Computed example of a mutant assay.
Amino acid sequence: MTGQAIREFAPAKVNLSLNVGPLQADGYHPVDSLVVFADWGDVIFAEPAPEGLHLSVSGAHAAALESEAENLVLKAAYALRAAAGRPELSARIVLEKALPVAAGLGGGSADAAATLRALCHLWELDFGARQLAEIGSVLGSDVPACVYSRPLLMRGRGERVSPLLAWPDLHGVVVNPGVPVATGPVFAAYDKTEPQALVPGAMPIAGHGDAAVTLTAALKNDLQTPAIAMVPEIGTVLDALEGLPGCRVARMSGSGASCFGLFDDEPDARTAADEVAAQNPSWLVQPVKFASALV
């Protein structure tokens, strides 16, 4: 074990698109989703400990996790230790929580993935990204994508991950109205629409921002309409984003309630974020850059 503390970033995951198929016999919905990761997120710190696995949580949204008996971070640590066959491995882990909980930003999955990466370094394990993604797949459908934390397609129930070969940086604004949304009820409402079987699309490729935004604009999030019916605040956020000068695309991420708007450049995104925040002081508003495929 190394003696040096490890810091690992856990970026917010945003679904630029989300196509969802009908519920399968295994209890999961097949998905086809274009996913990117922001320069905003949580942070995992891991350092040596005399024995055992210990977790503490700090940050703006730490209180929302106090009631969780076993955080995904600890589950990831135990899963990695089991995969390594090294029950004696120990660590002290700190989760600095900047992302809101139940927000459609993959926060818990990002934390679990960052924990796998951090402890792999701390414990000097010889696991590559593909192996960590396989370990992460038992923790949650979004964890394999979050292990890679780069533009990609998620398919299957999320475990089939295909990193994009060409995708540029994108500039945007992420807005959360402060209303947690449980994923299960949104999917249940979507099931009532009798969804059709998925027809997988082609691998998206874009060499510059305008092409990527145009491609994204032609896509959709199947869960957006049922989510708005359950949580009207999502529609209010989308209306606010769509009304901003320079907003090219406005859409909900995941199962909500967070939404994003895409803009041509960073100044436009920051100006838009300032305007939304000034008009809606109770909302969480964050200008972001979504990293390119060259990460």
Rank of each mutant, 00 (worst) to 15 (best):
P100H: 11
P100I: 10
L152H: 12
M154A: 15
P163M: 04
V94T: 15
S67V: 09
V73D: 10
S149T: 06
G104M: 08
P163K: 00
L139A: 13
L139D: 12
K97L: 04
A98R: 15
L105D: 12
R150H: 06
A145R: 11
G158I: 13
C146I: 04
G108V: 11
V147E: 11
D126N: 14
P144G: 04
V73R: 11
V138C: 10
L74N: 09
L152W: 03
Y78H: 13
Y78V: 06
S141P: 14
A84F: 01
L132T: 08
Y78N: 05
A98N: 15
G108P: 09
A79Y: 12
E70S: 12
P163D: 03
E88A: 03
A114V: 00
V161T: 05
A129P: 02
G128P: 06
S109K: 09
D111M: 04
R86P: 03
A98V: 13
A91L: 06
E68S: 08
L99C: 08
S90F: 01
I93P: 01
V101L: 11
P87G: 00
S141D: 15
G85P: 06
M154K: 10
A76G: 04
A133F: 06
G108A: 13
G108S: 12
A102S: 15
A103I: 05
P87M: 03
G136Y: 09
A77W: 01
A110V: 02
R150Q: 15
S162F: 05
L119M: 02
R92G: 01
R81E: 00
A69E: 13
L119A: 04
G106V: 09
A79Q: 10
G107H: 08
A69S: 08
S162N: 05
F127N: 02
K75Y: 11
S162Y: 07
